[in-house]
Design a protein around this nucleic acid. Structure first.
Lengths: 219, 219, 219, 219
DNA sequence: TATGAATGAGTCTTCATTCAT
DNA sequence: CATGAATGAAGACTCATTCAT
């Protein structure tokens, strides 16, 4: 039974013809918005259909079922973004550690600037035990990056060029905890500090400052 | 005729009489477990009833509806924990900044050690736009703490006793990003680095080291 | 997870308390009527709910799902009838072949008289390749009976007391083909021959006559 | 503007031009296969489309709707077979009763040999109360045959040339019950008696033997 | 001639909730 | 104090059918 479900499989990978109304793409965007707002598990197909202005039946026509839609969102909206991070990072094997770290922070922040929905979705669906993005992270995205980064950290540490009290494994985690995590909570910090201008660039500078020299507290 | 729905409203705040099997408390625990596992929004009353080994009707008898149950979990399981953090922190107004910071990190880590479910629930439900914990954070827990901490940071910074490139508003966010966030992802880092022993104490030491002196990268 | 779905399992095997309205039993009867009318596979839960005058949700409450309802109908409406046939027949091991055969025909015809819906359901759902009754026949009801009967036939044939041209395996099939099959089609034959009085007793006498002496055609 | 929906109505009765891939004919065959497998009422248009390897829309293009397809299957696949039976039988008005009976049995068995799907479909869809084939039988096929046969039986009986205890109306029913009915259940009897070789010819010989002289039980 | 797009109605099923007991 | 019975609303998904191309 040929899986010829998707109306025009040949069109799937890239963006649609453009110019014309692209209902499939709109559906993906609507799904993404719902996922960000309520979480993947709590989003119903009907929510997405309403958001996209189409009937639930159409979503079934395009994506077969709820899991198919979710997979399509991951494949066509999330993976391209993640792949970009991986490519950029792995291409920097020869740069100095400082360069790599700054590039990593810059990369994540630039990513947030372009895709404001990313951090919230990422933080939420990755830490969730049954989260679908967690598998994605653990099996496809992170292994290469984390191995590369952790190895590099350990090596620099042994050479005495990195704070010896740090845990090489947790350093990469820290980079995320100082960028994506604050970015995900931006609406909260804004409200908490009554600072409507608090943005990803503040996060970036703050993270770099903290990483670079720590708190600089007097002994 | 006011329908006094909760069996014994007077008993609610504290623990039940004890001695008897405490079905209400078990229900709260079951709900908490489900919230952690699947997220608050994606947890059905039926899930909780099954987990607790009671009928859905009993949950209605105790908590009126799903929102009532959720509120009870927040009030009786989450708030006590958060209040403890707030009390401890606010009681340290006179201590040195280093002492306060170390105490904050220690406090969060001790909390994780005692309530391993906390970080995942917290991280997930706080970033969710409509999340109920987010309201809780923004309206009840954080205002005092964040105001206290940010003011203290700014004051120390002006006195030249804190890295001037840091953002006082984001520093408290960073403390969470370096403790609760890594803690929430522990299963992932363990799998990623094949380190079954990676625990909250590693997170604590790493965070303190990073905060204290940063990366110590050579110029 | 204890399958404590059925409201009152203890009541299940026998008929309900009687006197009170037995909605579970009514649902089984309604399901049976629909199965007979349209076939098991083509009967929707909604059909049954409408026929029984209840909501589809109630059927789920009682029987969990469509398959559960079907199984309940089989177990509580069909099996008792079939078991009766098996018991009666297997209890006649010592009787003469003629006695056994006449008893078999009489038994089936009496059964039809008491449960007019039986033949149609039986004929239809047994020949259907994926039919659920077919499994029932092949695995639970027929093996004993058919083995017993075929063995008896073969033994009588060897002793020269049965038409040697007959196939012992098919003889029992013939008994059904001369009783249940004509009974299932009764409405048709009545219409075809404009005989409103054509009934199960005509079928019985005709079958016995044919079995006994055949057509008695002159050579 | 009369929408001439069937592509080439003139082609309908006979086989298509041949030489070209006959998608209409394949659809009919696919439908027939599905009908046999699941029953007419339980077969969806989509099932048939999948089986035929075409789109549901094409079936609508050819047959207008599900009923139209079913009617086409009846008209172009079933009726020719049934007509053949009728023609053959009605052409034997002058033959001896024995000849007619043997011919009838032979005819049905030959038919089964050529169209193994026939008996199952026939038995199932004819006894079903709302079955579409039942109308067919009652209104188009059987009236002539059954009238002819029953009259003949009655006449022979009055002349003392047929077992007087038989019911002339049911005799023709018996012929079907001893041929098509056993044939429909062949897979079952095979499994039940572990006889993979049990076939239509065994059925034919057994039926003839039983009809001819009955069981030949000793008094 | 044939099909991809689209949908309203219908399917089974789960859910939160009510209520009598 | 607790639950079994019951249901309306909503869930995912399937279906036959229409229509523009």
């Amino acid at each position: 039974m040929a899986r010829s479900r998707t109306p025009d499989p040949a069109r799937t990978p890239g963006r649609p013809p453009a110019g014309d109304t692209d209902r499939r793409g709109s559906a993906l965007d609507a799904a993404l918005a719902c996922y960000v707002r309520r979480g993947i598990a709590a989003t119903s197909l009907r929510d997405i259909a309403t958001e996209a202005g189409v009937t639930p039946a159409l979503l079934h026509y395009y994506f077969r079922d709820a899991a198919g839609l979710r997979d399509a969102v991951i494949a066509e909206r999330l993976m391209p973004v993640f792949d970009e991070v991986r490519e950029t990072l792995l291409g920097m094997a020869d740069a100095s550690l400082r360069t790599v770290l700054v590039a990593f922070v810059d990369l994540l922040c630039a990513l947030v600037a372009r895709h404001p929905w990313m951090p919230a979705l990422w933080i939420r669906e990755v830490v969730s035990e049954g989260g679908d993005l967690r598998d994605l992270l653990v099996t496809r995205l992170a292994p290469e990056i984390s191995a590369f980064m952790a190895a590099r950290f350990a090596q620099e540490q042994q050479a005495g060029r990195l704070n010896p009290a740090l845990d090489p494994r947790l350093l990469m985690v820290s980079l995320v905890g100082l960028t994506l995590f604050p970015a995900a909570g931006t609406p909260i910090w804004r409200q908490l500090f009554a600072s409507d201008d608090l943005g990803i660039d503040d996060i970036r500078l703050h993270a770099l400052a903290l990483l670079d020299r720590g708190l600089e507290l007097p002994a």
